[in-house]
């Protein structure tokens, strides 16, 4: 399936409906690439004309800013906003809640104002509009699923229901963890923790969180963030449960059910 970049769209004088902001994890991390591909497949199947920035995309600067390196963040922001404004981008959809938060809340003050959506909200709308129909109640019939709220989608931006509504479209049982929604627990990756060893403690944040997810008895842990994906997958492996418990992004679950 050919995927066109913004440069290609511009060269042919066409305008895409949305810009799919892939993000660094979605572009480079092998596991997260599967989320990217799944989302691209859904867009293609539904017939939405979308572009990516391709080689022109850069890190939003989120990990730099959260680590305290404001200078680097501002550099990345400047370059990205320059590129996006240059193409006259209006609508951005991203599979990463960190990128989503930056676009929604932090770029506007720097001159980058776009309509931005996280892919789970976008998928919820596609389902509600009848554009996405899950085959026979989806590929996970009768399975027990638990949903992990990422911090930057949930607490950070108050989006708790859209991803759950997508999951309710499946013919499955959705069970909540004790800590969910606004009280949800972090996977341990945020605030640039993804890129360094944890401080000394009694356990790792992701081990704790993955255990909470497995305690629900769910065989699928649904996530909405490529970083949560890594952390929770490691947490499941730590308990040697990777054969019986799968961590899947909501986009992957939808793509498997089309």
């Amino acid at each position: 399936m050919p995927i066109k970049s913004m440069a290609e769209f511009a060269a042919s004088g066409e305008t895409p409906e949305i810009l799919f902001w892939v993000g660094c994890a979605g572009s480079f991390d092998q596991r997260a690439q599967r989320i990217t591909k799944a989302f691209a497949q859904i867009l293609d199947k539904v017939g939405i004309k979308f572009a990516i920035l391709g080689k022109e995309e850069m890190c939003t600067g989120d990990p730099a800013r959260r680590a305290g390196n404001e200078f680097l963040f501002q550099m990345m922001a400047y370059n990205n906003i320059h590129t996006l404004n240059g193409y006259g981008i209006q609508k951005v959809v991203t599979i990463c809640p960190h990128c989503f938060n930056i676009f929604k809340n932090e770029y506007p003050a720097l001159g980058g104002t776009y309509e931005v959506m996280h892919h789970t909200t976008f998928l919820q709308q596609l389902i509600n509009d009848g554009k996405v129909k899950l085959k026979d109640g989806g590929a996970f019939k009768g399975k027990k699923i638990t949903y992990h709220d990422s911090c930057y989608l949930g607490r950070g931006n108050g989006i708790y229901e859209a991803p759950r509504e997508v999951l309710q479209a499946f013919d499955t049982e959705l069970v909540e963890m004790k800590r969910c929604r606004s009280n949800g627990m972090c996977c341990g990756a945020g605030g640039a923790q993804m890129f360094k060893e944890e401080e000394a403690g009694t356990t790792r944040v992701n081990f704790d969180r993955a255990e909470q997810a497995m305690e629900t008895g769910a065989t699928i842990i649904a996530s909405n963030c490529p970083f949560c994906m890594t952390m929770l997958t490691d947490g499941v492996k730590n308990k040697e449960k990777e054969d019986s418990v799968k961590v899947l992004d909501i986009a992957e679950m939808v793509a498997l059910s089309l």
């Binding site: 660094c24 572009s27 990217t36 691209a40 990516i52 391709g54 890190c59 990990p63 990345m76 993804m194």
Partner: peptide, 18 residues
């Protein structure tokens, strides 16, 4: 342009096998 040491040229490499 990414927090990991990958070549920026490979950012869209995933598009090759969708």
């Amino acid at each position: 342009m990414a927090p990991w040491k990958f070549s920026p040229d490979d950012r869209d490499a995933w598009t090759q096998d969708v």
